[in-house]
Design a protein around this nucleic acid. Structure first.
Lengths: 217, 217
DNA sequence: GTCTATACAGGGATAGAC
DNA sequence: GTCTATCCCTGTATAGAC
């Protein structure tokens, strides 16, 4: 898909995609140079062009891959915190904190998302839609299903799972994302926890079930 | 501040800042060229460098100016909708819609905000802080004061005005900002209204006063 | 036969010179 | 206002090395 043939050794290709993720995430699409990516990967520039037709193809390829990986990582967090809920407020808060850390972790996954958001006007619409579908949209759908399940168990009173998932994400995540500029600047972990706590509190006031009162204190 | 002397005619300078806002907003910092800005302004490139020391100085200058202008525009919207409230739900919704349109309007103000967010890792921290203070932070403070006043009148039950302002912005604005990638892609006005309506509804469930029940229907 | 290293053509950018 | 010095980047080509 959008690569050049099947030639080349797989371990080289992996080193290239890994390096491209790092450099694109750090420098952004325009500033990142193919020389820097080749150096970061420890391969010659010719090898990079042997695996990927051009810079744009490489960027879009790692963007889609990264998006899918991040969705899977978030899926694991949902399974960890939202499948077997005992203390809903606490589990929602822990999930919110860990998701924010996962998505906005300084150098890794989140940084490429920032590069994509910066280049969105220059990305072909079909690729952008594929990126959305593999990433944010998929995560939102997963979360909606968990909320629907929790509603079925009487722990939440959610009418529209999609709306609830969107509002949960806005209240617990986007405040952190905005403050950190999608991972470009560090945010203190206490701040992440504060936002998650306040966000979950607000979320439960909107969608909380009968047993979701506020904690004492 | 951060410009080159006071030389040059004021109308030329205005044409340059206006052109720079347009081109930086459209192309982003790296892709925008000083040639394109000079052409857009209808002046020679020498004139641009006569007013602004270099590309970075020009960018940061228009960024700060744009941030302050947008804050003022939002301030006017607050005065229009939140000073003399008769129907709180409706006024909050109208404010949310107009603010989203103002900030994310395709080519004008909002586009530069996207360029700044993309370049945040390359902006000096003091300039970034000045930009935040003149823009998002100031607007948030203004909104917090309005919510506190509405609370004093018994129309809201807000404990922490800052928190309420942040949650209002998240619930009614950031969903649109994310969908449009901060104005890079168009969002249907029905979608903006839908998000504003659902966001205000959620906001009033969190912070609504005694008389803020949901509308019939 | 893939990889490394290096060099190079072509284009475009900034910033300054005339 | 045009012209240009200097630099950097993409993508290709030309060598040889495991």
């Amino acid at each position: 898909m959008a690569t050049t043939g099947g030639a080349g050794r797989p371990e080289k290709r992996k080193a290239i995609t890994r390096a491209a993720t790092t450099v694109f995430g750090r420098e952004g699409y325009v500033r990142a140079s193919m020389d820097a990516i080749a150096a970061e990967a420890g391969v010659s520039k010719r090898t990079v062009y042997n695996h990927f037709a051009d810079k744009e193809t490489l960027f879009l390829s790692v963007a889609l891959q990264n998006s899918a990986e991040l969705t899977e990582r978030i899926r694991e967090l949902m399974a960890k915190y939202l499948d077997r809920v005992v203390d809903l407020r606490r589990d929602l808060t822990d999930f919110a904190v860990e998701r924010a850390n996962a998505v906005l972790s300084a150098g890794e996954h989140g940084a490429l998302g920032r590069a994509i958001r910066a280049e969105v006007a220059n990305i072909p619409v079909d690729v952008l839609e594929a990126w959305l579908e593999a990433g944010p949209v998929a995560s939102q759908r997963d979360l909606a299903q968990h909320f629907a399940a929790l509603s079925g168990r009487g722990l939440l009173a959610v009418e529209d799972g999609e709306l609830a998932a969107e509002q949960f994400t806005l209240l617990t995540f986007h405040g952190v994302a905005e403050r950190s500029f999608w991972g470009a600047l560090p945010v203190a972990s206490e701040e992440v926890e504060r936002i998650a706590t306040a966000g979950v509190d607000a979320f439960l006031r909107i969608h909380g079930g009968p047993g979701a009162g506020r904690p004492a204190g």
